[in-house]
């Protein structure tokens, strides 16, 4: 916060004039961008529908309450599928992501030029694409069903788990590594004895954390045909059976809360 000398008088200002000008320009740009964006959206909106929204909302709510309790019976199987998509998908991702993380970590990547870059590229691509998009792709390739869901979850999780795991490997203490190397151990044995024990808590924590996220994601994969409770959701929405929809919402909420609880318990236990 500068003090400006003008007419022999020290003047205190929060910023210099140049900074003030830049700040104003910045704000102007943001506001202009927002106005443009809003105009763009507004042009593509049918405002008649929007003015009708409160009535539509109230109507929707009245149809959703009470939930269709009897519908629960047909939901157990999709729920079981959802659980399997999340769990098997996470396991599959762990199998792929663990070696990948060792290739991507600076301190464990083998001295083969370009290998680390490839591993990082795989991690980045996997992370950038939402599991729902992976599911779209896989449903097209493999056909609708649970298998597409499992692989979609796995493809998205590989990048997530791989990134967190390789960061954990890079943060591991170098002293035991040096000590194990000094005994004449092979590079593979060094990783096994000096690195693996150090990253075990992180590994367990990351796995359960991702499993928890995957439960949430698995509930919606059905929207594009990749199995699980989302299939029922899409079917109910398509026939405007809002009582069923709210029932599915309740079940999803309960499942998500339960998996969050399990994940929090396990993570508290391993750290």
């Amino acid at each position: 916060m500068p003090v400006i000398h003008a007419n022999g008088q020290p003047l205190w200002r929060q910023r210099t004039p140049r900074a003030v000008l830049l700040a104003w320009l910045g704000w102007f740009a943001v506001v202009a961008l927002l106005a443009l964006s809003w105009q763009f959206i507004s042009e593509r909106t049918i405002w008649i529908f929007v003015t009708d929204a409160p009535r539509q909302g109230a109507d929707l709510l009245s149809r959703m309450v009470p939930p269709d309790w009897a519908y629960t019976g047909t939901l157990w199987r999709p729920l079981w599928d959802t659980l399997n998509i999340a769990t098997l998908g996470t396991l599959l991702a762990l199998v792929v992501a663990t070696p990948l993380a060792f290739l991507a970590a600076r301190n464990t990547t083998p001295a083969i030029p370009g290998l680390r870059a490839v591993a990082l590229l795989v991690i980045v691509s996997s992370r950038s694409i939402n599991s729902l998009i992976w599911a779209l792709l896989l449903v097209m390739i493999l056909g609708p069903g649970v298998l597409a869901g499992i692989i979609a979850i796995a493809l998205r999780s590989i990048g997530f788990i791989g990134k967190l795991l390789y960061e954990a490997i890079e943060e591991s203490d170098a002293k035991p590594v040096e000590a194990i190397v000094a005994t004449g151990a092979s590079p593979a044995q060094m990783r096994l004895y000096a690195i693996v024990p150090q990253i075990m808590p992180a590994f367990a924590g990351i796995s359960v954390y991702r499993w928890d996220i995957n439960i949430r994601e698995a509930t919606i994969l059905g929207l594009v045909g990749a199995g699980g409770i989302g299939l029922e959701l899409m079917a109910s929405v398509n026939v405007l059976a809002w009582g069923r929809v709210s029932m599915i919402f309740l079940l999803i909420l309960a499942t998500v809360l339960a998996s969050e609880w399990v994940s929090a318990r396990v993570r508290a236990a391993v750290t």
Binding site: K175, A179, I180, Y193, P197
Partner: peptide
């Protein structure tokens, strides 16, 4: 054989 200043044991083993 080598012995280290900060022991350099694998702590979790």
């Amino acid at each position: 054989g080598m012995i280290f200043q900060e022991f350099a044991l694998v702590e979790r083993l």
